[in-house]
Design a protein around this nucleic acid. Sequence first.
DNA 1: GCCGTTTTCGGCCCGACTGTTTTCAGTCG
Length: 582
Amino acid sequence: MPGNNTTLAAIFQQMADVTELLGGNRFRVNAFQRAARSLQELGEDVAGIDPGRLSKLDGIGSGTADRIREYLDHGRIDEHEKLIKEVPAGVIKLLDIPGLGPKSVATLWQQGGVTDTATLKKKLDTGELEKLPRMGKKTLENIKKNLAFAETAHQRIRIGEAMPLANWFVHQLRGLEPVEAVHYAGSLRRGRETVGDLDLLAIADPKQGETISNAFVKLEVVEEVILKGATKTSVRARTGAGRHIQVDLRVIEPEAAGAALLYFTGSKDHNVRLRERAIARKLKLSEYGLYKEDSETRVAGKTEEAVYKALDLAYIPPELREARDEIARAEKDTLPELVELQEIQAELHAHTTASDGHWSIRELAAAAADRGFHTVAITDHSKGQVQANGLNAERLEKHIEDVRAVAKEMKGKINVLAGSEVDILIDGKLDYPDSLLRELDIVVASPHASLAQEPAKATKRLLKAIENRYVTILGHATGRIVNRRAGLHPDMKKLVEAAAQRGIAMEINANHYRLDLRDTHARLALEHGVKLSINTDAHGPADLDQLIYGVLTARRAGAKREDVINTFAKPQLMKWINATRP
DNA sequence: GCCGTTTTCGGCCCGACTGTTTTCAGTCG
């Protein structure tokens, strides 16, 4: 069940769509869209924000704040109800078809009598739409093709699926003769949990654009060429998982590499703010560089750092470029120094063959040591996780002995902790008694079942788990699976306040299906002084590689090294863990 | 509708590519 934020975001997005279709003021449309994004990005429930603070949020003015209050009080917004009556729902859906924007959809609807995809399909076959303005044969052909594409699962791709594909493209293009460097940009570079497309940049002499583009469209995963120009090419490609994703390639001269990387990394809103800032300084920013107003003189462009500097800003890492507060902070040079992948020195949530993992305790410990980690916690499932071969009390006692034996054997190589991923039962009780939890070095408590519980119950359940005095880390708090399961919707503000009070950490589960806490929740945790723990929840050899996705999520939340317990040196980490227990 | 080093009005980002057009509107990122 979606929360207030998600519902309100959808409402404002609809108001934007309808206003645009009806030819309303485009800046008003823009404002509705911004309000929708702000609400979607909010880490806490909007209902808990008092009216004074509400209109101070980015993109939310007094008008939007009033509408939000109206929704919270009455469950609906009058203006929204009136607006959506003016356009059939099927017409709004047409906007999802690539290549169809508000102008074309309005024409199809008002002059062509198209009310949904079904009538669109029918009328495409009869040819009657050709009479409409700007609807030639080719345009109609394209609509037909894109309609078919839109109907076959157009979902954003998980970062764990997109990143390997992007790296593969980068590797392929790097091998081309005229190419100096290749980068991926876009939301992938910003570390978002899902991406809509891949943006690639080839740094090369633009005269070589054609050569590069020809090689690009011939790559084996490319299934269809969407457009192909002198410096810009778009294709549809197959992902490893058999889905399709659009991949855009731009060829950029070396002198503009930084400006282009900045531009294609986005976010769009971040770029808009930078351009406005440029204008205020009598400059002009585009993907080709930062120029003096009305002249060809390029002030900066070779590197991103140079462009930011010329705009009197500190360098802003990609993960923070979401048009929140990063530009104001860059101006004052108070941006956080974000945690880095190489700073992670401990894995605190991993499974062995004792439950549902593929490694023995020794293999897991050795793999962690190979990565340069100083500590690994063995945290197999508890008894309630029957399908995962969870350990009952008796087996856990034996397992603890086994772990201690390996710990002794590997002393000096790696610090092996005896732990558990104990299930948080439906009522918030833990799956082991305190007397057993006390014997462990570390306890990760996570919800696994009843993940569609109503928010109030979920909040109570998780609060109870946090309050257990043996819990060290709250594992994947919501239990969501990206693109597949919404998971719990607890009152996150209450949870982080309780975690802060208890002094325990909250996990960012780095598995790309989970990424739980998500970025906005992790940000909220940090704002309340809660430490994060980034763990891979490894079940097998390849899983430790997913750490990067957790780190990117933490960086999006603004996490510094000292905010993440996995970066602590061994003595500091042990001291921290022990301080959480009686 | 939002916003403020041009602050309560008057602005609101920039360029590539396509298709339908004879100079540009629409879409996308």
